[in-house]
Structure formats: C-alpha cells, structure tokens
C-alpha cells in the first residue's frame, strides 16, 4: 500500500570519505553472498572435505612442528594439504559461484550508470567489487589454511616454533596469492558476459580447458605444464614454501605464465569497466 506523500526535506550532513564508499560496495557483496543458501552450502561442504578433515587428521597425528612438507609434499606423488587437488578444485568452484554475478549482473541490469553518475571512480568501483569478492573468497582460501597452520602449531610436540611460524608466514602469502588469482580471474570472466550462468561456468571451464591443453601438449614438451593453472598454482606454492621448480620446467616460461595470470585478468577487467564507465 502506498502512503500519503510527505514534503521534500533536505539532508544536511558530512559526506564520508572515498574509502567508506568503497567499503559500502565490499560490505554489500559480503552480505549478499553470505545470505545466499547455495554459497553457504558450498562453503560448508568444501570446508568439511578440504579443510576440516586435514585439520583434525594433522592435529591428531603426533608431529614435531608445522613443516612445509605438510602443506605441499606430505603424500608422495599426491601432494600435501594445499596441493592434493581438493583445495584448488573447491577454491575454483567457490570462485566461479562467488564472482559470477559481480559485474555480469550490473551489465544485465544496465546499472553501471547508477554507480558512475555518483562520486566514485572506476578504480573505486573495481576495488569495491574485487574487495568484496576477495573477502568472501578468503573465507575458503585464506582463513582455513591459517586455521590449519595454527591447529598444527598448537598441537606440535617439538619446541621449534620458529620453523612453524615461518611456515605460517608462507601460508599467509599462499592464502593471499590464491585468493587474489582466483578472485581476479572469476571477476574478469564475469565482466565478459551479461549472463551470470555463463560467467560461472566460464570461469570453471576455462581453468579445465587450459588444464587439458597443458596436459595434452606437455607430452611433447614439459614446459606446456605451466599453461595448466592447477600446475601453475602448485608450482607457485612449492616456490613460496622454499622448494624448487621441477627441473623439466623452464623458470622463464613459468615466470611469464605466472605474470600473465596475475596481470591479464585485472587488466582486462579495468579496461572493460573503464570503457563502460566512459559510455563506450
């Protein structure tokens, strides 16, 4: 039921800072995502399979300290907590679901004009969107590995906490690195289409397509492995935790692939949103 209209009243108050306006976007995304039953369900299932079981398992089994091997090398041939495949797979699935509608929904609703007729810049909009997605993604990619590390440190039998804390520091970097790569990739795919379903499937599928291409061509030349995003992330974790790259992989090609996955999504995203904000 509509109500009797009241007179127009003016507003007098102090305008907030630029950061508060970016924070408004971050907060909205965080709130929206965590009120989605689908995302909550995926988060819980993913947590149970990927994080809770390893946390319990590694805490119960007697150990001297938290080591890099636990994170990436424990199971011979099968990888560690972060490189078993489950972590990246669920992280990718989570990124596809979380990021799919962030820009595509604005494209679909034509609501860019609502943002860019307000006192915010293209950079603020992007920082808000990426920040919101990053915060949600960190619930799966950043906080649980830290929780894993802390649980293992808390139950360690040895007294060498320096080694454990160094691994904890490396885990912080891995968490931020993984969250950033998957978030920027997911949001980039979202800015390429108006359909949220295409964006969701696109982010997931493009990782697998690259993985298949990498797998097929690595038979001819092992350097093709760096095309595979799963390998790229695993090799990056190895480097962060102080291990070497596989000898058959060229460090130059690996660096180039890493730089590409870090820079291309954010560049495409900025260019695409900037063009929209400029009415092109």
């Amino acid at each position: 039921m509509s109500v009797e209209r009241i007179e127009y009243t003016s507003w007098e108050g102090q305008k907030s800072s630029r950061l508060r306006r970016i924070y408004a976007i971050v907060k909205k995304i965080f709130r929206d995502k965590l009120s989605s039953k689908g995302i909550l369900l995926l988060l819980i299932i993913g947590m149970m399979i990927t994080h809770v079981l390893p946390i319990i398992g590694n805490s119960v089994v007697p150990h001297e300290a938290l080591t890099s091997e636990m994170m990436v090398k424990t199971i011979p041939g099968g990888g560690g907590y972060l490189t078993s495949g489950l972590f990246i797979l669920f992280s990718l699935l989570f990124a596809s679901v979380v990021c799919s509608d962030l820009i595509s929904r604005d494209l679909q609703d034509n609501s860019f004009v609502l943002y860019f007729s307000r006192p915010i810049r293209t950079e603020d909009y992007l920082l808000g969107k990426l920040g919101g997605a990053f915060t949600v993604m960190s619930l799966f990619c950043f906080l649980p590995p830290i929780a894993f590390s802390l649980a293992v440190i808390a139950t360690q039998t040895g007294g060498d906490y320096i080694v454990s804390l160094r691994v904890l520091g490396d885990t912080l970097i891995v968490g931020i690195f993984t969250t950033f790569i998957l978030t920027s990739f997911g949001v980039m795919i979202s800015c390429l289409t108006k359909k949220t379903s295409y964006a969701g499937v696109g982010a997931f599928a493009s990782f697998f397509v690259l993985s298949v291409v990498g797998g097929v061509f690595s038979g001819f030349d092992p350097n093709w492995q760096v095309i595979d995003p799963f390998n790229l992330l695993n090799y990056s974790y190895d480097l962060i935790y102080g291990f070497d790259l596989p000898s058959e992989v060229s460090p130059i090609l690996f660096s180039f692939a890493l730089l590409s996955i870090l820079a291309i999504p954010t560049t495409v995203l900025y260019y695409r949103v900037y063009r929209r904000s400029a009415g092109k």
Binding site: S2, E4, R5, G13, K15, R20, R21, Y115
Partner: peptide, 24 residues
C-alpha cells in the same frame, strides 16, 4: 552510501525519500 552518507544516515534518508515519493 555510495554518494557519501554514513550507513545510519543512509537508512534514515532512504526512508525519508521513500516517504516523499509515497512508497509504503
């Protein structure tokens, strides 16, 4: 909030504007 109002102010102001346009 995107235009620079703090959350509490934004809430009050939004209701005032919705009352002005006659939304119940």
């Amino acid at each position: 909030q995107l235009s620079g109002l703090l959350p509490e102010e934004a809430t009050k102001r939004s209701h005032a504007v919705l009352d002005f346009i006659g939304f119940g």
